[in-house]
Design a protein around this nucleic acid. Structure first.
Lengths: 181, 181
DNA sequence: CGTGTCATGTAATCAGTTACATGATTCA
DNA sequence: TGAATCATGTAACTGATTACATGACACG
């Protein structure tokens, strides 16, 4: 089974809700979806051109934004169709590479304080993520409570919350276990 | 900051515990570490050659295994040093792409039964993973209880267990919420 | 008038997968 | 003898990141 490019579906998915410029898409993904999705400029812009060539999106220059060249993309019927078709396909399981877990597995090769420091950094980063997530949930709750897809968005934030909490739990108990030895 | 190849450290880490052939390494990673790490043949074999060229591993043909050409790799002092140095470096946070979560976020575009079916498949796959994990933990417990690195391995299985459970919890409550609507 | 942000993009490189190729050994 | 497994590898491709390049506009 050939691996299909997934960036395109993230893009089509975003455009299925609202029209955006490339820049806005990048921002949006980083802000509201970075808990489970990442895109870089170097994939986004070429992909938008490709999708336009394939007729799945169309674009025009936004004049209201002044002289600044801002190209707004919108999804086409063909794009919607491609998106819906993909949504019906079986989900491929991602393969993970958890660098921190690998380092823990090799714990005998580094000083315990250093390993504890890694775990501590990990927790700090997770707590920061958690803070951003709570802000986001709050923002959606107060500013976008009427969005028709809000129930679905909420489910994705549930996911982020549960995973972050699980990682925090693990890190905490791992620190305790390591200190107990 | 340039991204460093991580496969090499997974390989060096494995060889830091015991000598293996390429084939055995692949098997071992798939069996005992696939919860948090994945390697493919097409990366493993070239990487082993490269590491040998760099003097981080050395190899010899295993004669005891008969006429079959089995090349056993072992880590060198230089390899150990490289590994230990990497272990001290800050951990880079992986960027995730959760296809299922993306599909849930776009739930308004597909029939509810189909979305529920995706979640159901997800749970089935997680339960299978859980089963494999329990077997593995059991195996380590009964066959390798004296391994000096067992405490560290246990911590990695704790991680797998917690993450799998968190995903199962989310999937379960997501199915319930979707059905309630 | 200079720093930060808005805005779009490319080149070079590296990472990683899929599919294929080859051949020996084991065992039913 | 033919299927399964052991064993090692390559070619072609796709995915993804990093770093760089360019320029306009906003605002203090």
């Amino acid at each position: 089974m050939k691996k299909e490019n997934k960036s395109q579906y993230a893009i089509l998915g975003l455009l299925s809700k609202q029209s955006y410029s490339g820049y806005e898409m990048k921002e949006k993904i980083n802000k509201i979806a970075h808990f489970h999705w990442a895109e870089s400029n170097a994939q986004l812009y070429p992909m938008l051109k490709q999708l336009e060539k394939e007729g799945k999106v169309s674009s025009h220059i936004d004049l209201s934004s002044g002289a600044r060249q801002k190209r707004i993309y919108q999804i086409t019927d063909l794009g919607i169709e491609a998106l819906k078709n993909w949504l019906l396909q079986p989900v491929e399981q991602p393969q993970y590479r958890e660098e921190l877990v690998l380092k823990v597995a090799l714990g005998e090769h580094l000083p315990k304080e250093k390993l504890l420091a890694h775990l501590n950094d990990y927790m700090i980063q997770l707590e920061e993520k958690n803070r951003l997530l709570n802000n986001m949930v709050n923002h959606i709750q107060t500013q976008h409570s009427k969005r028709p897809d809000k129930p679905y968005l909420d489910l994705t934030y549930d996911y982020a919350k549960i995973i972050i909490q699980a990682k925090l739990d693990w890190a905490k108990q791992t620190i305790q276990k390591l200190q107990a030895v």
